[in-house]
Amino acid sequence: MSKLIGGIEGGATHSNIILMDITGKVIATATGPGTNHHMTGMAECQKRIADMVNSARLKAKMGFHQPLDALGLSLSGCEHEETNQELVNGLKDSYPNLSKVFAVGSDTEGSVATTSNCGGITCIAGTGSNTLLLNPDGTRVQCGGWGNLLGDEGSAWKIAHRSIKYCFDDLDNFEEPPFPTDVIWAEVKDHFNIQNQADILDYFYANFDKARIASLCKKISELAKKGDKLSQYVFEEAGMHLAKSVAAVVAKAAPQLIKRDGGVQVLCVGSVWLSWELLKPGFVTWMRKHTEIEMISMMRLTKSMATGACYMAADKANIKVAKDYSNNYTVFYKYDRKAAFTS
């Protein structure tokens, strides 16, 4: 059998794996639950990874005794080398037939690897948020990625939290909101099946569920599209936060990344980016007022970042795999500072 490389895209709430041969053809796929070890614990994270590999091997008609030639792990929460090595060591000890070689990086690293082998910028805005710059020389610059207590600006969590907070501050007569809160508050009560403020506390404390809270974001986006001013304002705030995080890492980007055709390439990953038309006013306004960045190409993956995880693994194992980066993404927006307005 030809060499097989596995790649896992692992988020806070769900994950997926692909198996790829050296021609770049996907042989098998499988899905699984979240694989952020900060949320699941290291042992459970390792078990979920092994379960996904086994599901994919079954579809590829491989025996469980036959290890993959390389396995790339592009996982939320894998930002630090020490814990990444702990993850790999545990996989080798508990599941010795899983893979011959492992390559581990954050979900942002896997995203960059899907689009280029010489670095780039990924801005993730899903349940949480994180922005990472990888320079051609391998240096990294991170902004965000610190979780809901210390970061997550521009994420679904933050949009949901901000929406709820505006309602609470208004109901408490603590601070006047920029726009009426009645539409959002009605949606909050329906989403959590509550009658009053006190009823929501269990979701934030005793039985905290970040994904459940973040899922309110989609409903806020629907309200914004229907014209609710406060919902639109919350998304504009999120757009500004995402612009700030991109600008923070662009400041330390290598010249060749800034001088690419189309300017700085920013790969936008996560469900929040699907509401780009709501984010755009805040994003563009902040960029124009606070930066000197001339051009940005906003890109969206057309293939799973599990593809990038496969590329990472192949490079680590010195396996030559056919890579056609241009088929892995599309440009959905071009920011041009000189233009009065761009579409």
Rank of each mutant, 00 (worst) to 15 (best):
F235Q: 00
F235V: 06
L267R: 02
A186C: 09
E292W: 04
I296R: 01
Q195R: 14
V284P: 00
F168E: 07
I200T: 12
E222V: 13
A214W: 01
V272E: 02
S271Y: 05
I200S: 09
K226F: 01
T302H: 07
K226Y: 04
F192M: 13
A214P: 03
W157Q: 02
M299I: 10
L267P: 01
T285G: 12
I296C: 03
M240C: 12
A156L: 05
L279H: 02
D199R: 11
S275A: 13
I159Y: 00
N193R: 10
V250E: 02
I184S: 04
I164R: 01
A186M: 11
N193A: 14
P281C: 11
Q232F: 00
D261C: 06
D170T: 15
V272A: 03
F179M: 10
L223C: 12
W286G: 00
E175Q: 15
T291K: 06
K226N: 10
L223I: 08
F235I: 07
L301V: 08
D202N: 14
W273T: 07
L230V: 05
D182C: 09
T291E: 07
L274S: 11
K189W: 03
P178A: 11
K225F: 04
N193K: 13
W286Q: 04
F208D: 03
L301S: 09
A251T: 12
A156T: 00
A253M: 10
E222T: 14
K210D: 02
M295K: 15
V264S: 02
L223F: 01
E277D: 15
K289V: 09
I258H: 03
E237A: 03
F235Y: 14
L201I: 14
V246W: 00
M287F: 06
Q256G: 04
A211M: 06
L279R: 04
S271M: 06
A224G: 08
D202W: 08
K289R: 15
Q232M: 11
G239M: 03
K218A: 12
K219C: 03
E175T: 15
H290I: 06
R260S: 10
F192W: 05
L201E: 08
L279I: 08
K189E: 01
G282P: 03
L301C: 14
S215M: 10
A224R: 03
A238G: 05
N173H: 13
G227S: 08
M295E: 14
